[in-house]
Nucleic acid binder design. Sequence first.
DNA 1: ATCTTATGCATAAGAAAATTATGTATATAT
DNA 2: ATATATACATAATTTTCTTATGCATAAGAT
Lengths: 122, 122
Amino acid sequence: MYIFEVYQQVMGNSKLYKGSLHTIILKLLEENGKMYGYEITQKVKEITKGELQITEGALYPALHKLESEDLLDVEVAKVDNRMRKYYKLTEKGSIETVNKLKELEQYIRNMQVLVNPKWSIE
Amino acid sequence: MYIFEVYQQVMGNSKLYKGSLHTIILKLLEENGKMYGYEITQKVKEITKGELQITEGALYPALHKLESEDLLDVEVAKVDNRMRKYYKLTEKGSIETVNKLKELEQYIRNMQVLVNPKWSIE
DNA sequence: ATCTTATGCATAAGAAAATTATGTATATAT
DNA sequence: ATATATACATAATTTTCTTATGCATAAGAT
């Protein structure tokens, strides 16, 4: 019996993803209106061509946290006899999304000048 | 008596910096040959125009970790009667620097397509 | 002269955010 | 039948910071 182990390439394959999960979730919800947890993991996997796999242990606590901060609204649905919890941005969440994206852009800018002083900051 | 508090803007002002300290240190050492801890904090502050302040509580343990992984060599010096510990990349450290920079580029690419599907990945 | 700020290192306690490991349950494919 | 996919949840542990100390010398300000 042969066992082919598939190494799950999780967030933190490169540790850099640490701290960017909330930004990712908020932006995907801004883009797609409403999504449920599992859908988010699949979307991220698809967009990054499998490079970034969000683990459930990170995702669900993050969604709960964002909800508790009134950045997300939840709506429970039953599809094919399976539960789904659809999340969407609140008004506060939309504002926070803009802030988080600005922080991301600034972070990227700073990292670029730190690691490559020759790059222009346009 | 008036007290003007200066709020130190530390790493994690935006949480995104979590996980990027090792990359920053390695790249600065690649760029500058050898540096001591305090010098690194000042260089980062200068390059990011004060936006990113590396705290000592993060920096020194990080340097010790990199040293223990044989990525850095240390050389102690005494300048103006004060101790300095100069760090430089080992051969292994140089290789790891290249890897970390590739990971950073990939991270930035992935985040860009995640947050802005319209951006080109060049 | 004295006090503050800057330089330079170090470590311990606590918090935050992930990983890893479980657990439950239904649907689908082999 | 059995494994995989779908869909949620949480607890234990680890990693990586922040915050709070501690020590020591030099330089600048009042």
